[in-house]
Design a binder for these strands. Structure first.
Length: 937
DNA sequence: GGGCTCACG
DNA sequence: GACGTACGTGAGCCCG
């Protein structure tokens, strides 16, 4: 049949699949002869998954996998340097190229490559041809060079993210629609493919220019009109180079084809061919899997070796992770006999993935509704325990639905397993489940946590939530909780979800967790982060769980009184503000305030932001207030009170637990990229302290009768770490001798004596010290100190002159990040820096973040080490660790034991780097105590 | 739901 | 002459 309307062509970017597979998998070899086959294995998994996922009514009618033939193409005649700096493919990948072609043919999918052309050219020609014939096209690739083809029935699909790329997505990426993408690419160039472009012009700028001038030729013709001289020169002087670049990136619909679209019609795999190939490759598990899918007997293994029993575990894991998900296969456990069978299986295997379903995300209030277990990929079950009938009476109470195990019985059966030292419990964000189970008297141990594994390997690359990990690494979108619970006002709690639905959702979560674990466990080692995971991530889980469950006592009356006082003051201020403005308006609306200040009142110095709104930040208002304007001064006061009231005195009261009378925050271990913790619900890491008025909120954080709050914090820990890492003798000596580090810096920089130093000079040195930690810039320092930029730059220059090691540290860190795509802390924590080679303003952000990360991250590692050692160190003392605020730990302790506690904790904190890292500066800890947090700090 | 503003280290 | 910039977070509010 002639290809035409109603037909749908899939074009698979084969080369991208291969490289993806190669880098995603460990270097596997064929058992019988050592032939490298890792990439082939991954490639086959991807093809199998593709075939399985494309069977329904929406299935394509035509499909082809397109490969690059060789590295030399017609583009090298246009520009000899094109892709010239591209490294040769790795030694163990090269022999796998022909095998991937063979694999494609084994799947009975058209396999296409043409001498002298890139895969992209063939994809372009096929897309055009199919589109012109009236069919639709999906290109399975995430290659930006193909985005110019999108539109008119042609779309792309990123196969890893399962994300559709249409015209709008292209616009998002390039700032122009597909037909102008080549213009933008021609201007921006591409350092990876060696497309020269215009120097200093990145995608952002190129898009702006094309948007303004319409297209590339108009831009080149009117280049003289460009206002910014640098850009103008870059374009005027490189016009020819830009035109060449355009020819390099433009894909040609007329690339010759030696076959017709009809040749690409979808064909079913021929069982003998496909199984024969897979078997020859010795992909045992995949062979079995494919045979099952084709409903034929798997062929006997070619050798006696059965991979599962004889090692090469990774390949089994990879293949297992890729098995299709089947929610119909999940079991629902309703009686002790069935549960006993699963427990026996768990004991046999020595591990289990577990997930709890509850009525709330707040572990301190959540009620347990069910538990899911998974013992191997696809083998999962759900135990409903607390599901209730839909409606309920007036008070929301309702009966448990029938046919559920009694909660107590299930837990008493599971407890010995969950507490068994020889059985590994695997979870995604185990702190949550551990806390839920702890409330039922179960101490889960030992554990592994897939969220933390991902964090140890991929911090900075992407988030570590289960849905995202599953989609990214298993190519599967798990059932969204929203589909069960709904959202907004009509949202229900999990106990109201029908058991049948709950089984599919909950068991799948355990299944996903198990598969992620299978995948991540061997990868940790290859990423060299096993130690980080095992010493800085995993052991923190029980420590934080204890702290969160302990909570901190907060006095409701104190907060309530403060709220009332704030409300009164605010009302007064509001009246004054309205009077000054000559009419009422919403003081809390930056938009309205900006209009009042800069339009109605016509005050000077107003600046509009990028979306047309007047800036009304504190710095702007402070400047206005300093010029004697009353209204902005009052607004500043009002804002401070409003913040304190809504975020603290009001909101904190809501967080006091009805039974414990305490506030239980939750720390996310994998929240901040640098290794810091983040505190949520409520955030207890940003309780005011800098202003006198705000600091009083800390008076509401109290010690119970007979006890004291004790606070210990590291003094200048980040500067000390900088002094150590950058190896600055003067700084290190100052820290060893206990000098005032900022005064010392000022003395060194400005040649002034320490005695009788001007506080302003010291303040400037302090700002520079902090700036260095943040990846200093003249602009930033100038803004912070409110001095001219040239002066700020002068300070920085002098600083680098005096402490050349700092410069060295910065340069080396950037170079390391560029070469490796990540930076590291002293303890080996890895912070990925995917944007480090970006062009444009993003580059600055990435560079400063890369400079900051090892310093902030090392400090975070140090306090993590201290916290992990703390339970043992203070065992037997009448004391509890309550809170962490980045460089501070807060404890509650019986009065008489405060001295002993401080001594013990200080010892642990000051020695926390030992013995893994021998710091060449001392860490010192300052301690305070009192009846409330304000007094203890 | 994004942007603004502001609290902390 | 002004692409834009100090690093890392979370929460509450306004507004479309």
């Amino acid at each position: 049949m002639t290809f035409g309307k109603g037909h749908h062509l899939h074009l698979i970017d084969g080369s991208a699949f291969i490289f993806r597979a190669y880098h995603a998998l460990p270097p596997l070899t064929r058992k019988s002869d050592g032939l490298p086959v890792g990439a082939v294995a991954g490639f086959c998994n991807m093809l199998f998954r593709y075939v399985e996922n494309n069977k329904g009514p929406d299935a394509p009618t035509h499909v082809a996998v397109i490969f690059d033939h060789s590295s030399k193409t017609f583009r090298n005649e246009i520009y000899p340097l094109y892709k010239a700096q591209r490294p040769e493919p790795p030694e163990d990948l090269r022999p796998q190229f022909p095998l991937t072609r063979e694999a494609t043919r084994a799947f009975n999918i058209a396999c296409i490559e043409t001498e002298g052309f890139e895969a992209d050219d063939i994809i372009a020609a096929l897309s055009c041809k199919a589109r012109d014939a009236g069919g639709s096209v999906t290109i399975l690739s995430s290659d930006k060079d193909l985005m110019q083809l999108v539109g008119d029935g042609v779309e792309m699909l990123d196969p890893m993210k399962n994300k559709r790329i249409g015209r709008d997505e292209v616009f998002e990426k390039f700032g122009v629609y597909p037909e102008r993408v080549v213009d933008v690419q021609a201007l921006a160039g591409d350092s990876i493919d060696n497309v020269p472009g215009a120097p200093g012009i990145g995608i952002k700028t190129a898009a702006l220019l094309i948007q303004e001038y319409g297209d590339l030729e108009s831009l080149l013709a009117r280049a003289g009109e460009i206002k910014q001289p640098k850009r103008r020169a870059a374009i005027e002087e490189n016009a020819e180079q830009i035109r060449i670049s355009k020819r390099l990136v433009a894909l040609d619909c007329n690339t010759p084809l030696t076959f017709s679209l009809e040749d690409l019609e979808v064909r079913l795999p021929v069982a003998d061919d496909l199984l024969g190939f897979l078997n020859r490759m010795e992909f045992r598990t995949l062979t079995t899997r494919v045979a099952a899918s084709l409903k034929v007997e798997p062929p006997p293994a070619p050798t006696a070796a059965v991979l599962r029993n004889e090692g090469v575990p990774e390949i089994v894991e990879q293949v297992e992770a890729a098995l299709p998900f089947d929610s119909a296969s999940y079991a629902c456990i309703r009686d002790a006999e069935a549960l006993a069978a699963w427990i026996a299986r768990i004991r046999d295997l020595g591990h289990v993935a577990i997930d709890t379903e509850t009525t709330s995300l707040d572990e301190m209030r959540a009620e347990l509704v069910g538990i899911s277990l998974c013992v191997e990929a696809g083998a999962a079950c759900y135990i409903p325990l607390g599901h209730r009938a839909g409606g309920g009476d007036l008070f929301g109470a309702s009966e448990l639905v029938a046919d559920q195990m009694p909660l107590g019985l299930a837990l008493s059966m599971l407890k010995p397993v969950l507490e068994d030292e020889s059985i590994l419990k695997i979870g995604q964000n185990m702190k949550y489940d551990a806390k839920i189970l702890a409330r039922h008297g179960i101490r889960v141990a030992p554990i592994d946590d897939t969220m933390l594994m991902s964090y140890a390997m991929h911090a900075g690359r992407h988030g570590h939530g289960m849905d995202e990990l599953c989609d990214t690494y298993l190519g599967h979108k798990p059932i969204a909780i929203k589909t069960l619970l709904g959202s907004g006002k009509s949202q229900i709690t999990f106990d109201r979800v029908p058991v049948e639905q709950a089984v599919c959702y909950a068991a799948e979560d355990a299944d996903v967790t198990f598969r992620l674990w299978k995948l991540f466990k061997p990868q940790l080692h290859r990423a060299r982060v096993t130690t980080v995971y095992e010493t800085l991530e995993r052991p923190l889980v029980p420590v934080l769980a204890e702290m969160e469950m302990a909570g901190v006592q907060v006095d409701r009356d104190t907060l309530s009184r403060m709220s009332n006082a704030f409300a009164q003051k605010m009302a007064g201020l509001e009246a004054e503000i309205h009077a000054l403005a000559g009419g009422p308006f919403n003081v809390g609306s930056p938009k309205q305030l900006g209009e009042i200040l800069f339009e109605k009142m016509g005050l000077p110095g107003g600046q509009k932001g990028k979306n047309g709104a007047w800036g009304t930040g504190a710095d702007v208002l402070e400047d206005l207030a300093a010029e004697g304007h009353d209204l902005p001064a009052r607004v500043l006061d009002w804002r401070q009170l409003s913040k304190l009231k809504s975020t603290y005195t009001d909101a904190l009261q809501e967080h006091i637990h009805p039974e414990t009378g305490r506030v239980h925050t939750s720390y996310s271990i994998a929240g901040a990229n640098t290794g810091r913790l983040a505190s949520t619900d409520p955030n207890l890491q940003n309780i005011p302290v800098r202003s006198e008025e705000g600091r009083r909120i800390r008076e509401a954080f109290v010690a119970p009768p007979g006890k004291l709050l004790v606070s210990l914090d590291y003094s200048q820990i980040e500067l000390r770490i900088l002094a150590h890492i950058a190896d600055i003798p003067a700084l290190k000596q100052a820290f060893r001798e206990g000098h005032d580090i900022h005064a010392m810096t000022a003395s060194e920089m400005f040649n002034v004596p320490l005695e009788g130093m001007d506080p302003m000079i010291r303040r400037q040195a302090k700002a520079i010290n902090f700036g260095v930690i943040y990846g200093i810039s003249g602009f930033g320092l100038a803004r912070n100190l409110r001095i001219p930029r040239a002066d700020a730059q002068g300070f920085i220059d002098r600083y680098f002159e005096r402490f050349p090691g700092i410069r060295g540290y910065m340069d080396e860190t950037i170079a390391f990040a560029k070469a490796n795509g990540h930076v590291e802390t002293l303890f080996g924590r890895r912070i990925n820096t995917p944007e480090i080679n970006a062009k444009g303003p993003g580059a600055g952000f990435a560079r400063r973040a890369a400079i900051n990360a090892p310093i902030q991250g090392t400090a975070a590692d140090v306090i993590r080490r201290a916290m992990i050692r703390m339970p043992k160190a203070i065992r037997g003392m009448p004391a509890t660790m309550l809170l962490q605020v980045h460089d501070e730990l807060l404890f509650e302790v019986e009065e008489e034991a405060a001295d002993a506690l401080i001594e013990r904790v200080r010892e642990v904190m000051e020695g926390a780097a030992d013995p893994a890292v021998k710091l060449t500066v001392p860490l010192t800890v300052e301690a305070g105590r009192g009846l409330n947090w304000a007094a203890a700090h």
